[in-house]
């Protein structure tokens, strides 16, 4: 694999414990520039915890995390944003009592280039026309799908090089899920590297280049997403195949 793109994010021997409970038992993963990498697994497998450890929301008990070769373990999450990593948290985490536009502006909180912010907002609104119609509305009045779109659009406003998405399909109607995943593909085509955590393995394997399967805090399988989607074990466990 000498022609593989350079590494964006590398996680080595990552362990995370909540008190005595070991949520992550030493996992390794690599995200290469320009890829969509997905982390799939059942409830409680440790997907969200992995993502939170990467974005600095929880402190790992062991292991190293490097972003473009630079170690970032131990940095606070608000510093990660400045390094180009944006995290769209699980459950969307939109600011319900602020307007949609204020939500987007907060996404660009760390930036001071006004022209660039305006251009990126325009780009985000082109990506999500539904959001444009609701700019002045309170974000809490949006539907679940729209809130997820807003959460992704808001994360993009930081102009990240690496976007962490935590279960963007959670609680959404199948048709909206289709739309969201199409947009995830578009975002990636625009040059943003994506680490996607999903329970919806079918959709995730469909868009991703590379995939990891997480079970009880350990990675049990990895490989190109297409191959994993064909493998019998994954089909049985996650895709409902026989």
């Amino acid at each position: 694999m000498s022609d593989a793109p350079p590494v964006m994010l590398e996680v080595k021997d990552l362990q995370v414990a909540y008190g005595a409970i070991k949520a992550i038992r030493g996992i390794n993963l690599v995200v290469r520039i320009g890829q969509i990498v997905t982390l799939i697994g059942a409830n409680g497998a440790g997907k969200t915890t992995t993502l939170r450890a990467i974005s600095g929301m929880v402190r790992p008990s062991a292991g190293t995390i490097t972003l473009r070769g630079q170690p970032i373990g131990g940095l606070a999450s608000h510093q990660m944003v400045r390094l180009g990593m944006a995290h769209a948290p699980e459950g969307r985490g939109i600011f319900a009592n602020l307007s949609v536009e204020e939500n987007l502006d907060l996404g660009a909180y760390i930036r001071r280039d006004r022209a660039g912010i305006a251009a990126d907002k325009e780009r985000a609104l082109t990506l999500f026309p539904r959001i444009r119609e609701r700019l002045g509305q309170n974000a809490g009045t949006l539907s679940g799908g729209e809130q997820q779109m807003l959460a992704i659009a808001r994360a993009l406003m930081a102009r990240p090089t690496l976007l962490l998405l935590d279960e963007p399909s959670l609680g959404l109607a199948p048709q909206i899920v289709q739309t969201i995943f199409q947009i995830i593909r578009d975002i990636n085509a625009g040059g943003t590297t994506i680490l996607l955590v999903e329970q919806n393995a079918h959709m995730a394997l469909n868009v991703a280049h590379h995939a990891y399967v997480l079970e009880a805090g350990e990675i049990t399988m990895e490989g190109p997403a297409r191959e994993l989607a064909r493998s019998d074990e994954v089909r049985k466990a996650y895709l409902g195949g026989h």
Binding site: S77, V81, G93, F95, L106
Partner: peptide, 21 residues
């Protein structure tokens, strides 16, 4: 001010925006 309001709305999301709580 928006940073203040975002902290009230959702601390985790505020941190994800790069706000030092």
């Amino acid at each position: 001010g928006r940073a203040f309001l975002s902290i009230r709305e959702d601390e985790i999301a505020a941190r994800s925006m790069g706000i030092n709580l």
